[in-house]
Amino acid sequence: MVDVVGLLRNYFQQARKTAKLAELLATARSSTREAADRPLPRQNTLHRSVVKLLIEDYEAGASPYELAERYNVRRNTVGDTLRRAGFDLTVKAKRAALSEEQKAEARRLFASGATRRELMEMYGVSESTIRRALRSSVELTMS
Rank of each mutant, 00 (worst) to 15 (best):
A104M: 08
Y65M: 06
A114P: 01
V2R: 00
A106Q: 03
L46G: 02
A93L: 15
A96I: 07
S128Y: 01
R9F: 13
R38M: 09
T77W: 08
V50I: 15
V51R: 11
S137L: 07
S63G: 03
E23Y: 11
H47C: 07
S137T: 13
S112K: 10
T77D: 03
A15M: 03
A62W: 08
V138G: 05
F87M: 01
Q43S: 08
F87D: 00
T129K: 00
Y71P: 12
L21P: 03
R70T: 15
A93G: 14
K103Y: 02
S143G: 09
L67P: 01
V125C: 06
G6K: 04
S143P: 04
S128Q: 03
M120Q: 06
A19I: 15
M120R: 01
Y11F: 12
L24R: 05
K17T: 14
E100A: 12
L82H: 04
E139T: 14
N72R: 13
F87S: 01
R135S: 12
A93P: 15
N10W: 05
R16G: 08
S143V: 12
L21A: 15
N72T: 14
K20D: 14
D3M: 10
E100N: 08
T77S: 09
T129Y: 00
L8E: 02
Q14R: 06
N76A: 05
D57K: 06
R84K: 15
E118N: 02
S63N: 04
A111M: 10
A96F: 01
A104W: 05
A35H: 02
K20W: 13
D37W: 08
S63F: 07
V2K: 00
P41S: 06
I55V: 14
S99W: 02
V125D: 02
Q43W: 04
N44W: 13
R132C: 01
L89T: 08
G86K: 04
T115F: 05
T32W: 06
L21H: 08
A114V: 11
R83D: 07
A62S: 06
L24E: 06
Q43H: 07
P64L: 08
G61F: 05
E66Q: 15
A106N: 03
K52R: 12
L46F: 11
S137I: 07
G113N: 05
V73D: 04
V91E: 06
A106S: 10
S30Y: 10
S99N: 01
R74I: 14
K92F: 15
A104Q: 13
D3K: 08
A133G: 09
D57I: 07
R83V: 15
S31T: 14
L109A: 11
A97M: 12
A104D: 13
I55G: 00
G79M: 04
I55T: 02
Q14C: 03
L109K: 06
R108Q: 07
S136H: 06
T45C: 01
R9P: 03
A111N: 12
S112I: 10
D80C: 08
T45H: 00
R42I: 14
T129M: 00
R33S: 14
V91T: 11
V91S: 06
R135P: 05
E23W: 09
L109N: 01
I130M: 02
L40N: 00
A36I: 11
R132V: 02
G86N: 04
K103W: 02
R38A: 11
V51L: 07
T18S: 05
R83C: 11
S128F: 03
S30F: 13
